[in-house]
Amino acid sequence: MADDTTTDDATVQDDTTAGDGTSTDTDDLAKLKSALASEREQRKAFEKQAKANSKAAEELQRTREAAMSEQEKAVELARAEGRAEAAREHGRVLAEARFEAALAKKGIELGPAADLIDKTRFVAEDGSVDGKAISAAVDQLAKLTPKGPPGSSGGDFGGGNGSGTPAKNLREQIREAETKGDWKLSRQLKSQLALEQTKQ
Score class of each variant (00 low, 15 high):
Thr17Glu: 07
Gln42Asp: 13
Asp130Thr: 02
Gln61Ser: 13
Gly160Phe: 02
Lys180Pro: 02
Lys105Leu: 10
Ala114Tyr: 01
Val123Ile: 07
Ala30Thr: 12
Thr63Met: 11
Asn53Pro: 06
Asp28Ile: 11
Arg62Glu: 09
Lys73Phe: 03
Thr24Arg: 03
Gly162Tyr: 04
Lys31Ile: 00
Leu110Arg: 01
Lys105Trp: 08
Glu196Arg: 14
Leu170Ser: 05
Gln197Tyr: 04
Ala124Tyr: 09
Arg64Trp: 11
Ile174His: 03
Val75Lys: 10
Ser152Ile: 02
Ala142Asn: 00
Glu39Cys: 09
Gln13Ala: 15
Arg121Ile: 10
Ala95Phe: 00
Gly127Met: 02
Ala177Asn: 06
Ala10Asn: 12
Ala142Glu: 04
Gln13Glu: 14
Glu65Asp: 14
Ser153Trp: 02
Arg92Tyr: 01
Asp3Pro: 04
Ser152Asn: 07
Leu103Met: 07
Pro166Leu: 06
Thr22Ser: 09
Glu125Asp: 14
Glu85Trp: 00
Asp25Tyr: 06
Ala95Asp: 01
Asp182Asn: 15
Gln197Gly: 08
Ser186His: 00
Thr165Leu: 10
Arg83Asp: 14
Gln173Asn: 04
Leu170Gly: 05
Lys105Arg: 15
Met68Leu: 15
Arg88Ile: 01
Val12Ser: 12
Gly154Cys: 08
Leu170Asn: 03
Lys33Cys: 02
Gly154Ile: 10
Asn161Gln: 08
Arg88Pro: 05
Thr16Phe: 14
Thr7Ile: 12
Gly148Glu: 06
Arg88Lys: 13
Ser23Phe: 06
Ile174Ala: 00
Gln188Trp: 10
Glu196Asn: 15
Met68His: 05
Ala10Trp: 10
Ala84Pro: 02
Ala177Phe: 05
Glu176Ile: 11
Ala95Thr: 02
Asp182Val: 06
Leu144Cys: 03
Glu89Val: 13
Arg79Lys: 15
Ala124Phe: 12
His90Gly: 07
Ala30Val: 06
Lys73Thr: 09
Glu100Leu: 01
Ser34Val: 05
Glu178Ser: 08
Asp27Tyr: 04
Gln188Lys: 13
Ala101Glu: 11
Ala102Val: 03
Asp27Ser: 03
Asp4His: 09
Asp118Phe: 02
Val12Thr: 12
Lys168Leu: 07
